[in-house]
Design a protein around this nucleic acid. Structure first.
Lengths: 118, 118
DNA sequence: GTCGTACTCAACTGATTGGTTGAACATGGA
DNA sequence: TCCATGTTCAACCAATCAGTTGAGTACGAC
């Protein structure tokens, strides 16, 4: 499901090399060789990383002679931010309510203090 | 570094069970037993999942008699959204510029057409 | 102290992952 | 057609991971 898609996206970005690839693709499309150049792992390893990003829907590939230019599909980010924001908001709302309850409790304590003092 | 922290957060959320735990914790603190109840895996397995979330800084645990109430630390989400938004914006900006270039190109083509037609 | 509850630790297992190397495939140029 | 370039495929290895079971620990109730 879309659930599984989210798992693949999070898993893909859990690796620093893959996050770096995404970061560099944000600046513009690049070939596998270009992408592999800065890392001291084999080209095949980078090719595998790109495959993972592709399976997660974060990257698509075209054709330019022998090259397979990689393109970042930034819309997939929406899937993550959607999930994250949902629960962040929920937690914040709960926190806000807790704050209100504590304020209420404080007010009642003040009343009691006043009654005790009076 | 903070880089590694991000890896742990993404990896923690790459598992559907752990995302579900986070979702349920967004509604309020829960004990390990409470959290484990809906899943048909062992309590120990859920305990391990919680440990992963804790190591990622997404969850903290208190003490309430025998219980270890789990609490969602929603601020960690900022770490992710910060990273995501940075590259999303960059990619969108690039897309915007590409759009401008294409529009420019279109305008020039129109001029050529006009010259050709004139 | 002993008992039950809530949970963690330890050891093991099978599956997945990130890396390797070497061979294969695809494409454009001589 | 042959060659070089760019990339993928296949087999393998070590490490990590999600799950298991069984034993151990922490705390409150009796």
């Amino acid at each position: 499901m879309g659930e599984d898609r989210l798992s693949r996206v999070f898993a893909a970005l859990a690796d620093p090399t893959r996050r770096d690839i995404v970061a560099r693709l944000a600046a513009g499309d690049k070939s596998v060789g270009d992408l592999a150049a800065p890392y001291d792992v084999s080209l095949q390893a980078v090719s595998k990383h790109i495959r993972v990003l592709e399976d997660a829907g974060l990257v698509t590939r075209g054709r330019d002679a022998q090259r397979r230019p990689c393109h970042l599909e930034a819309e997939v980010f929406d899937l993550m931010t959607g999930w994250i924001e949902r629960y962040r908001r929920q937690a914040e709302e709960r926190f806000r309510r807790l704050d209100a309850v504590l304020a209420e409790l404080d007010a009642e304590t003040d009343e009691d203090d006043n009654r005790g003092a009076a």
